[in-house]
């Protein structure tokens, strides 16, 4: 019944090794991410269209409401010529988006997709996931630098500011939650919530809200899409990219969003609760994550882009101090999660 056990049996490889490969490649990893990306980009366009009294994508796969539009776009982009402009730092230009996406994909080895569905289990998996996700800004800055374009360069500068600003709040809210559960292991965190029947969202709404807002910032979602900043800096660090490299750099934001929303699901929405079987649990995790992502993409049709200085001052002078309140809440409430 368990596909991982069946694979390990027929291939003669240890169980943990199959799991370590299957998790990042299949679920919750790349294969699942492809489905999520195709769905969420379509949903983003469709939701925005509905709010804006339009129809949105329709004519590619009319029966499905244009759901295959993103696939069609993706195929087109995949076969597009990759142009490397004169004057770019060739190797860093080509390698940094590939590397950045690879780094984000590494997070899928850590984040569980359901009960027992994970690559590795570690007592520090929460922190490790955070560390992996926050490695990408460095590569985005490399992209902007290598592109040899003023808009890219300004975008790289914004990425630096945004990552420092957002990640402080992101880490603070995660640590507040970890303090509440007394653990940094996703499995233990979910089990603590299942045991007490109180999801983290109810126990510590401040930390949950902060995490969500900071996740929007580090993944360039509106109202914080400063790095993309189309009206000022065209596409920021990604301006010069074409073809598959462009697709990778665009997928980067969605991959980060997917990872962070998975983390949100585990830390604040009790992961696979109320199920304990791998299949139903995985479906629960997947559904919760998708729902969170839908909320995140819905905000695109509500807000414009916030200004750089306002974002920085909001995060440092309002949200970061609020994270300290989240710590206080955690300190008060942690007995309910005591084993």
């Amino acid at each position: 019944m368990d596909p991982i056990a069946w694979l390990s049996g027929s291939l003669g490889v240890p169980y943990w090794a199959v799991r370590a490969v299957a998790a990042p490649l299949v679920y919750p990893g790349l294969a699942a991410f492809m489905v999520v990306a195709l769905f969420i980009i379509w949903a983003e366009r469709k939701i925005a269209a509905r709010v804006q009294m339009r129809v949105g994508p329709l004519y590619v796969s009319r029966r499905l409401g244009g759901a295959l539009q993103v696939l069609a776009d993706g195929v087109r982009i995949a076969f597009q010529e990759i142009i490397i402009p004169v004057g770019v730092e060739k190797w860093s230009f080509v390698l940094s988006p590939i590397l950045a996406f690879t780094v984000v994909s590494l997070a899928f080895t850590m984040v569980p997709g359901g009960p027992g569905i994970y690559g590795f289990r570690s007592s520090l998996s929460l922190l490790a996931t955070y560390a992996i996700v926050t490695l990408t800004p460095i590569l985005v800055i490399v992209m902007g630098w290598a592109s040899n374009n003023k808009f890219s360069y300004i975008g790289a500068g914004r990425e630096a500011l945004v990552s420092i600003t957002g990640e402080a709040t992101l880490l603070a809210s995660l640590l507040a939650a970890a303090m509440m559960y007394g653990s940094m292991d996703f499995v233990e965190i979910v089990e603590a919530q299942m045991r007490s029947h109180v999801p983290g969202l109810v126990a510590n709404p401040v930390a949950a809200l902060l995490f969500f807002i900071a996740a929007l910032l580090v993944t360039d979602r509106l109202p914080f899409d400063l790095v993309l900043g189309e009206q000022e800096i065209v596409q920021g660090p990604y301006t010069e990219y074409t073809g598959l490299l462009f697709a990778l750099s665009m997928a980067l934001g969605y991959a980060k969003l997917y990872v962070l929303m998975l983390v949100f699901t585990h830390v604040f929405l009790a992961g696979w609760a109320p199920f304990t079987s791998p299949l139903l649990g995985s479906i629960a995790v997947f559904a919760k994550t998708l729902l969170l992502m839908l909320v995140a993409v819905f905000l695109r049709s509500v807000y414009g882009r916030m200004r750089l200085d306002q974002v920085a001052s909001m995060f440092w002078s309002k949200l970061f101090p609020l994270a300290l309140v989240a710590f206080v809440v955690s300190a008060l409430i942690h007995p309910i999660y005591a084993p």
Binding site: R50, M53, V55, L299
Partner: peptide, 18 residues
């Protein structure tokens, strides 16, 4: 209010000509 106004529009049909 901003979120609610946008969400309310989500339920209404498009005004574009097909």
């Amino acid at each position: 209010e901003a979120i609610a106004t946008a969400a309310r529009r989500l339920l209404e049909p498009p005004m574009t000509m097909p």
